Amino acid sequence: MKYGIDIGHNCPPVDTGAVGIRKEDELNKQVGDRVIEKLKALKYEVVDCTPSFASNLGNSLYKRVNKANEEKVDVYVSIHFNSGGGRGTEVFAISKEGKDIAKRVVDAIATLDYVNRGVKDGSWLYVLKNTKMPAILVEGGFVDSKEDMQRFNAEKTANAIVKGLTGSTVNEKDSENGDAKPSVDIALLKMQNGLNILNILDYTGKKLNEDGIMGEKTISSVKRFQGIVGLEINGINDLKTNVALANILSKPLLKFGNNNIVANRYIQWRLNIIIDGIFGNDTEKAVLKYQTIKKINVDGIVGIITWNGLIV
């Protein structure tokens, strides 16, 4: 995974940021440098897309986008702070994949007690319109908000952005040493284990490394699972996804006419038949066929023995 990090503005005298209680250029730089260090510590490839000089504002924006496109980064992240009398954090994006990333980032920053202004349409922003990869523009807070500036912490903000991007955080010492020790999300660790039990493979066709880190492979498996069981496909380890996973792992009794849509859909997926969540004639026939092949009790009911054959 290659990230393109654009430290907003910071290209004087033609491209400088807003000024309020604090200077945006200073905050962008403090956060951006840390984000780059932390991503490198986590062994990601990072391209600094911030230009050192430009002839005018348009040229500054062009150079940022051109660098990301030339280097063929996988995700572009432009780091900014807002102004104009509001407060809180928001992240702009255009594509579906960009908006998924943006939601993870804005939610992570909001845990630092910022108002969560959500994901915003970035179709009017040059750097998002002209990059060829999923791209986001982060507004970490308002430089003219006393409340936002009192809670600003560059280290925490950088960790929140990195967690939104990768699922991991890196403490300051490890980041400086280049020897990352990612924090482990126990809930995510349990989800990875559950996905492996259910044989939900990642985009490479392999089971997940159960490490408690929300990397791209885990996100791809979560999305696959969400699609199978009929949830919103967002790649987020949210409550609905966990409930669906627990439902299936509990091995509920399934038979003709039952209303457990989530478990029915999973069974249909495993038996390679049309997935509609309805345990009707086609699903019963498929279960009977499976039981016959496996030489287990042929009754068309998914009980504990049939479940054990499917997910253990």
Results as ranks from 00 to 15, higher is better:
Val119Asn: 05
Gly141Arg: 04
Lys129Gln: 15
Lys146Gly: 02
Val229Lys: 08
Leu201Tyr: 07
Phe142Glu: 05
Asn171Met: 12
Lys206Gln: 14
Met214Ile: 09
Asn193Asp: 15
Asn196Cys: 07
Phe142Trp: 02
Pro134Ile: 04
Tyr203Met: 13
Gly205Gln: 05
Val119Leu: 08
Ile200Phe: 01
Ala160Val: 03
Asp238Gly: 15
Lys190Pro: 00
Thr131Ile: 04
Ser123Phe: 07
Ser221Asn: 08
Leu239Gln: 14
Ile197Arg: 09
Asp238Lys: 01
Ile136Glu: 03
Ser183Leu: 14
Ile236Leu: 05
Lys163Met: 13
Asp174Val: 00
Lys163Phe: 10
Ser168Arg: 04
Val222Glu: 01
Gly141Ser: 10
Asn234Trp: 02
Asn209Tyr: 13
Val184Glu: 09
Glu155Ser: 11
Gly167Gln: 01
Gly212Ile: 02
Gly167Val: 08
Glu210Tyr: 05
Gly235Gln: 05
Ile236Ser: 06
Ser168Gly: 11
Asn196Thr: 14
Ala154Arg: 02
Leu137Trp: 01
Glu155Thr: 15
Ile228Phe: 07
Glu139Leu: 14
Gly167Trp: 01
Asp144Lys: 04
Phe225Met: 10
Lys173Leu: 11
Val170Glu: 09
Asn242Cys: 10
Asn177Met: 13
Ile219Ser: 09
Ser220Tyr: 02
Ser221Trp: 07
Val127Gly: 01
Ile161His: 02
Val229Met: 11
Ile186Ala: 14
Ala158Asn: 10
Met214Cys: 14
Ser220Thr: 08
Ile228Gln: 04
Lys217Pro: 00
Gly230Ser: 11
Gly141Thr: 03
Thr204Ile: 06
Pro134Tyr: 06
Asp185Ser: 15
Glu155Cys: 06
Gly141Lys: 04
Asn234Leu: 06
Asp121Asn: 12
Lys223Glu: 13
Gly164Phe: 01
Gly205Leu: 11
Gly235Asn: 05
Ile197Pro: 03
Gly164Asp: 05
Phe152Trp: 12
Asp211Asn: 15
Gly230Phe: 10
Ser175Asp: 07
Glu176Tyr: 07
Gln150Arg: 11
Pro182Ala: 11
Glu147Pro: 13
Thr157Tyr: 06
Leu189Lys: 14
Ser123Ala: 14
Ser175Thr: 08
Leu189Gln: 12
Ser183Lys: 00
Thr241Cys: 15
Pro182Phe: 01
Val143Gly: 07
Glu139Met: 04
Ile161Lys: 06
Ala135Leu: 04
Val143Asn: 07
Lys120Phe: 01
Asp174Leu: 00
Leu198His: 08
Ser175His: 05
Ile219Asp: 03
Gly215Met: 08
Glu210Leu: 00
Lys207Thr: 15
Asp211Gly: 06
